[in-house]
Design a protein around this nucleic acid. Structure first.
Ligand code: MN
Ligand code: MN
Ligand code: ZN
Ligand code: ZN
Lengths: 127, 127
DNA sequence: ATAAATTTGCAAATGACTTGCAAAAATGCC
DNA sequence: GGCATTTTTGCAAGTCATTTGCAAATTTAT
């Protein structure tokens, strides 16, 4: 584990919501080149320390968002993203494992990944 | 409706699976500039004739895929994408409307959109 | 048809992400 | 620790889907 990787993982672990490379790149705790950030996000994901999804929002464009994964234990979470304030709301751990199994049976394919998230206006931005 | 828009809509309507701008741009039935393709895909989506989602596949990169929507009637579909042969498999009409309502109640937010799709290896590529 | 409004093609720009390469840091071994 | 080997980093340039400005062409309104 290099200094950059430790710092990145630490930030991901602390973060309450998914973060993008540009957000991480701007953090003073991560004084690394953007190439290093990108390379290490890939590294952490491929090592099972993080997972990601691509989300497009009008204001910030299309970006990949990463979140921490405690290796082995537990399932990943799904998220709601507010298009106004850009906060993510945790919808809780993935409850689709069964459904995935059923689809694999029904269609004969192997699911390596599923992407699910919501976008809209959060409760506070609504009012 | 301009010539370009009619042609685009026609292709989307015929297509059995979601298509990306680059796929459409390569089609002889659409002898239009890529800017026109992109602009009109936006137009068709904003008019409710199409919907789209962004999908990343190792081989083809990150692209937005569009599919036809018959305005008013019926729900959109969700898809499985094979990372080997790049075919999409239709998982049927969206069955999450209820779930969305419940989440809106529970969290107080308004869902304007949900993204859901699967990736993996299809039955034929498996063998 | 004619004028006004919208769309198109072209070429250049954008922005997230990637890559080659030489220098710097981490790792393995004594 | 010290030294050789492997991996990672910073920098700068590149890639690629998508966007944009603008003048010409097409569509729409009258
Ligand atoms: Mn946002
Ligand atoms: Mn593909
Ligand atoms: Zn909000
Ligand atoms: Zn396949």
């Amino acid at each position: 584990m290099t200094k950059a990787r430790k710092a990145l993982l630490e930030l991901l672990k602390e973060s309450k919501e998914p973060v993008s490379a540009s957000m991480l790149s701007g953090d003073p705790a991560l004084p690394f080149d953007q190439a290093t950030i990108y390379r290490n996000l890939h590294y952490l994901e491929e090592q099972g320390f993080a997972e990601s999804f691509i989300l497009h929002c009008t204001e910030h464009g299309t970006e990949r968002y990463y979140s921490y994964l405690s290796r082995g234990e537990g399932v990943h979470h799904h998220w709601f993203h507010c298009e106004k304030c850009h906060k993510f709301i945790d919808l809780g751990g993935c409850a689709y494992q069964e459904q995935m199994k059923e689809w694999e049976q029904k269609y004969g394919f192997i699911i390596t990944e599923h992407t699910f998230f919501l976008t809209g206006i959060c409760a506070s931005c609504k009012s």
